[in-house]
């Protein structure tokens, strides 16, 4: 059995946070949000670049399961996560997360469902312009993606129990 050691190293950060001056929580959050606002145009460009990268990665996927190729798609989807939310495209954020989750499950299951991935990739382009879809349309697209992902998950669970 390995030996376990416990110790309490000094953390300077706690002391620094208490130093006089600084900002109030309200000021800090306001200033940070202003900083994010200042890079929103760059964020939007990066969102478009990642959607393009995801489409290209998907188009290059081989017909059969290829863990490395799918990992490329997973990585591209992860690159998109976190960006749409900053510029108010929350539905696109949800779809990017759904694609990352789906590809992660495919890699773990050793199975590639092209249609499920294709629906996700196409949805990204649609959700990039939420105004064109309207509230009802946005809801339908997200519900469709959830259905596709849940179906894969259910098939995965079924395959594991067989």
């Amino acid at each position: 059995m390995s030996e376990v050691h416990y110790y309490r190293p000094k953390m300077k950060l706690a002391k620094m946070l208490r130093e006089p001056g600084g900002k109030t929580v309200a000021e800090a959050v306001r200033d940070a949000n202003a900083g994010l606002e200042s890079i929103s145009a760059d964020c939007m460009d990066e969102v478009d670049a990642f959607i393009g990268r995801i489409e290209a990665t998907f188009a290059a996927l081989p017909a059969d399961f290829d863990a490395e190729a799918l990992h490329g798609l997973y990585k591209a989807a992860n690159g998109l996560i976190g960006l749409p939310g900053i510029v108010g495209l929350s539905e696109l954020e949800t779809a990017a997360y759904s694609l990352a989750d789906l590809t992660d499950r495919m890699i773990a299951a050793g199975r590639f469902e092209r249609e499920a991935a294709r629906v996700h990739v196409q949805a990204l382009r649609l959700l990039r312009r939420p105004d064109a879809l309207g509230v009802a349309g946005l809801g339908e697209v997200l519900a469709g993606l959830a259905q596709v992902r849940d179906k894969f998950r259910a098939m995965d669970v079924q395959a594991a129990s067989d």
Binding site: M16, L17, E19, G21, G22, K23, T24, V25, A26, V29
Partner: peptide
Amino acid sequence: IESRARFNLKSA
């Protein structure tokens, strides 16, 4: 997020 509590990250 409306808190007036202060903290200082300047020297970190």
